[in-house]
Simulated scan of single mutants.
Amino acid sequence: MATLARKQRFPFPDLPEWFEAFPSRFAMPAMADLYTVRIEAYMENDRYVVRAELPGVGVEDLDVTVEEGMLSIKAERTEREVDKTHSEIRYGSFTRSVALPAGAKEDDVQAEYADGMLTVSVGLGEEKREARHVEIKHTA
């Protein structure tokens, strides 16, 4: 079986591949990616459930609100005062809002926080009726 020989033009054969990967190696993530709260949402029985990943946040630094069809999660991770040689942990305030489904009962909200996961569930009732068309009378 014949093997094709590849002629090297560069004294360092891995250098072209390194430059091809250059943007991905040194690209800065978008600011939204740095300070977003990652969530998953699903229906379970008669409840809408939102789970938020918030490691390293104390329960006293969490705030959950429901208003006008929106569920909002606010959190703050405080930086420890130590001399660091390296840190990839993001500190500061984080906020995430999610539109609640039709029929969500804003007065039936439960929240639990354990092992860095916040679980918020909202009771679901009957969906609101569809919009009703109103006849418009033309006047001259």
Rank of each mutant, 00 (worst) to 15 (best):
M1Q: 00
L4G: 12
A5M: 12
F10Y: 13
P11N: 07
F12R: 11
L15V: 15
P16W: 01
E17T: 10
A21L: 09
A21I: 06
S24W: 07
S24M: 07
F26H: 04
F26G: 01
A30F: 00
L34R: 13
Y35V: 15
Y42L: 11
N45F: 04
L54S: 09
G58A: 15
V59E: 12
V59S: 14
E60M: 14
D61N: 07
L62P: 05
D63Y: 00
T65F: 05
G69F: 06
S72T: 12
K74N: 13
A75Q: 01
E76D: 08
R80F: 03
E81W: 06
E81D: 07
D83F: 10
D83V: 14
K84W: 10
T85M: 09
S87F: 11
Y91R: 01
G92H: 01
T95L: 13
R96N: 11
R96D: 11
S97L: 14
A99F: 05
L100P: 01
A102Q: 00
K105H: 07
K105D: 08
D107C: 10
E112I: 03
E112V: 06
Y113H: 04
A114F: 01
A114V: 13
L118P: 01
V122H: 11
E126Y: 13
E127V: 10
E127K: 13
E130R: 00
E135K: 14
I136Q: 05
T139V: 09
